[in-house]
C-alpha cells in the first residue's frame, strides 16, 4: 500500500542527466563576447553567393529587403528620425546576435540547414552590405571580436521607474481636470482597419461557409478518386518547406512565390500578376507545361533545372517527397 507522506523540499529524482551530445545539439546560443561560436570562417564573396541563393528571395540581393520582409542593410543615422530604419548595421548592438539568429533560425522555412562556414560567410556579406567591412574581409571565430557594430552604445537599461516616476500618482484628478476637449485625430481619416467582407452579414456567415464546404466536397471527387490520400497527407507535410513563399488552397494568394492552385498540368508562368523571372517567362513562351515529370525535375534541383529562376529553394532530395508534394498540389486542381 502506498504511503502518503508530504514531499520534502528536496529533489524529486525526476528526469535524467542530459548527455554531452544532447547538450551540444541544443545549446547553440552565442553570447556577445563570442562564447559559443564554432570554429570556422567565411569571406564576403562566398557570402554574396550563399546570400543570393538562400536569403535574397526575402531580403534582396543587397540585403535591402523585399516587400515587407526585413531590410538587413542601411538606415545608419536614422534612429532619431521619424520612422527610423532598423537594420543590422543601423540598430543591432552585437554581431553575435546576427550570427546566432542566422545559424539557428534562417533560412525561413529551412532553419538549421547552414554549415558554420556558410553562416560566417552570410554574416560577412551582411556586414559588407552595411559598409562595415571591405570586400576582402573574412569573418571567423578569430576575427569576430574585431567587429564592433555602430549602435553598440545605443541602448540604456529600462529607466521607467525614474524617467516616468510622475506616472506614480495615486491621487489623479477627478473633477474639472480640463477646460475644454477637442478631437485632434480620427482613425477614419487614415482608415487602415481591415475591411470586414459583408460585415452586416456576420450572422449569415456560417450558412455561407457551409454552402462553400458542400461545393468543395462535390468538386474534387474525380481527382480525389485517383489520388492516394496518404500520399497527399505526406505531401502536405513536405509542403511546409515551401510555405515560406508559396500558398495553395482556398484563399491562397501569390506571395514571395506564385500561388500554386492548379499548378500540375498548367502552363508555366500561369499566376496572373506574379513577377516571374526572365528565365521562367522565356520557358513559358517556349511552351513549358508543368506536367508531373517537369515538376519533378524542377523540384529536385530548381536552379539546375532552370538557370535564373527566382526560386531560391535548394531542392527536394528524396523522390518520395517530390512525388508526395506533386500529389498534394494535385489535390488543389484549380
Amino acid at each position: 500500500m502506498a504511503v502518503v507522506s508530504p514531499v520534502a523540499a528536496e529533489k524529486f529524482g525526476l528526469g535524467r542527466p542530459a548527455l554531452p551530445e544532447e547538450i551540444a545539439a541544443w545549446d547553440l546560443d552565442v553570447a556577445p563576447d563570442g562564447t559559443g561560436l564554432p570554429t570556422g570562417s567565411g569571406d564576403v564573396f562566398t557570402g554574396e553567393e550563399v546570400f543570393a541563393e538562400k536569403c535574397a528571395v526575402c531580403h534582396g540581393d543587397f540585403a535591402e529587403g523585399v516587400g515587407n520582409w526585413p531590410k538587413l542593410a542601411g538606415g545608419q543615422g536614422t534612429l532619431d528620425h521619424e520612422d527610423p530604419l532598423k537594420t543590422v548595421g543601423s540598430y543591432w548592438p552585437y554581431l553575435s546576435t546576427t550570427w546566432d539568429y542566422v545559424n539557428r533560425s534562417m533560412p525561413f522555412g529551412d532553419a538549421q540547414s547552414l554549415t558554420p562556414d556558410e553562416v560566417y560567410a552570410i554574416v560577412a556579406y551582411i556586414l559588407y552590405s552595411n559598409d562595415l567591412v571591405d570586400d576582402e574581409f573574412v569573418l571567423s571565430d578569430e576575427t569576430f571580436k574585431q567587429v564592433e557594430l555602430p549602435n553598440a552604445d545605443g541602448f540604456i537599461l529600462d529607466d521607467r521607474l525614474d524617467a516616468e516616476k510622475h506616472f506614480w500618482n495615486p491621487e489623479p484628478c477627478m473633477e474639472n481636470c480640463k477646460d475644454s476637449v477637442e478631437i485632434t485625430m480620427r482613425a477614419l481619416v487614415l482608415d487602415v482597419t481591415p475591411e470586414e467582407e459583408g460585415a452586416e452579414a456576420a450572422a449569415e456567415a456560417a450558412p455561407v461557409q457551409e454552402a462553400v464546404a458542400e461545393e468543395a466536397v462535390e468538386e474534387p471527387v474525380e481527382t480525389a478518386a485517383v489520388l492516394d490520400p496518404e500520399l497527399v497527407a505526406k505531401g502536405e507535410k513536405t509542403f511546409k518547406k515551401c510555405k515560406a513563399c508559396h500558398q495553395v488552397g482556398e484563399n491562397a494568394k501569390s506571395k514571395t512565390g506564385p500561388i500554386l492552385n492548379g499548378i500540375v498540368g498548367a502552363p508555366a508562368g500561369h499566376a496572373e500578376g506574379f513577377r516571374y523571372s526572365k528565365a521562367m517567362k522565356a520557358a513559358a513562351e517556349d511552351g513549358l507545361v508543368w506536367d508531373e515529370a517537369e515538376l519533378a525535375a524542377f523540384l529536385a534541383k530548381p536552379k539546375k533545372y532552370m538557370k535564373g529562376t527566382k526560386m531560391s529553394f535548394a531542392g527536394l532530395k528524396k523522390d518520395s517527397d517530390i512525388e508526395a508534394v506533386i500529389a498534394y498540389l494535385q489535390s488543389y486542381s484549380r
Partner: peptide, 18 residues
C-alpha cells in the same frame, strides 16, 4: 536586441523593458 527594445526620440533605445 533588434526587437522588443524601445527607441526614444533621441535615437537611444531602452532595453530589458520587461
Amino acid at each position: 536586441t533588434s526587437k522588443y527594445t524601445d527607441t526614444l526620440a533621441n535615437g537611444i533605445s531602452r532595453k530589458w523593458t520587461w
